[in-house]
């Protein structure tokens, strides 16, 4: 009898084994199918792009070719700043363009310095950034062509309500920075810098240059990351920082955000040094033949067109206009 029970047990174990094997093979099969499927799709798309160039249309199936041409969506790689991306502006512009061109816009959000570097490495078709000096260098070095103005907004100086550096309402950004540095040296204030060669960081350095002060000391914190990270740090430590107005507008209604706008930019009648112009540049196809120059130019035409400029003008966050179109 015990033998019978053993056999029964073994059957049970085998049944369990079988079930396991079955389940495993189903899983494996599914994975294989997904991989094969992806492979086929990949192959199909390369074949169809190639067919336009090399292969003559297949004579046997002209109907297929005419009725349903397999259209591969072209891709435009845009290296841009975190401010255009985080502000949500591209979520308005890009879908309209994608519909027009039947293409996909792939956005690579980085600081301006990094966005330009991405394009210099040939990993982008187009840059949409804000640091005029660096943009001009990009074009002069032969990496970019057809630079156009798109829009502008401005920077503002944020700080804690207690305002230990007493900069509230100042009309000179340089004067405000001088006060922050003095309060920082005295141990009463801290400043948080992007420190990432972004457009905002470039502007910050320009303002320090205007003060004649080289910021140094433990009060001057360089974060090396994006606007959001820098605002988080400045808010946590109740320090001063320079921010683009767009990001500030998005952040000011956030739960727990306590920094206040202390010095205005030119959009609201403040210091002109705080103006923040955005430019768009196509990557030079002579430098990188692989870039999608045609699509890049179409995009530039689109954002500088009446339609594109209208979209920029009407874009609102929390009821406020973020960007002011100025394409010429």
């Amino acid at each position: 009898m015990t033998g019978d029970r053993d056999i029964e047990n073994m059957k049970g174990i085998m049944r369990k084994d079988m079930r396991e094997i079955f389940l495993k093979s189903v899983l494996l099969g599914t994975i294989l199918m997904v991989i094969l499927g992806a492979g086929c799709i990949g192959k199909e798309s390369t074949e169809s792009t190639a067919s336009g160039v090399t292969n003559p249309p297949v004579q046997n199936e002209p109907a297929h070719v005419q009725d349903e041409p397999i259209k591969v969506q072209e891709k435009l790689r845009m290296a841009t700043t975190t401010s255009t991306y985080d502000s949500g502006l591209l979520d308005v512009l890009n879908p309209v363009f994608q519909q027009k061109c039947n293409c996909i816009v792939e956005v690579i959000p980085k600081g301006t310095g990094a966005a330009i570097q991405t394009a210099k490495d040939g990993d982008a078709d187009l840059i949409f950034v804000h640091a005029r000096g660096k943009e001009d260098a990009f074009v002069n070095e032969g990496y970019g062509v057809n630079r156009r103005d798109v829009m502008y907004n401005d920077f503002v100086i944020l700080g804690p309500e207690s305002d230990p550096a007493k900069i509230r309402g100042m009309t000179s950004a340089a004067e405000a920075f001088r006060n922050i540095a003095a309060a920082g040296m005295a141990g009463n204030a801290t400043f948080f810098s992007r420190g990432d060669n972004s457009g905002t960081h470039t502007k910050e350095k320009a303002i320090w240059d205007a003060t004649g002060i080289v910021p140094s000391g433990t009060w001057y914190n360089s974060v090396g990351k994006g606007m959001g990270d820098t605002l988080t740090a400045a808010n946590e430590k109740l320090g001063y920082t320079l921010a683009d107005r767009g990001t500030y507008i998005k952040w000011k209604s956030k739960e727990g955000f306590e920094l206040q706008l202390l010095v205005e930019g030119p959009v609201k009648g403040g210091d002109p040094i705080l103006k923040n112009p955005y430019g768009i540049i196509a990557v030079n196809p002579e430098k990188y033949p692989d870039v999608n120059y045609k699509l890049a130019m179409e995009y530039i035409e689109f954002v500088t067109s009446k339609d594109g400029q209208e979209l920029i003008k009407n874009y609102r966050v929390n009821g406020e206009q973020l960007f002011f179109p100025d394409a010429k």
Partner: peptide, 9 residues
Amino acid sequence: GGNIVHQLY
């Protein structure tokens, strides 16, 4: 940590 560096002489 916040990835912070200070500028010092």
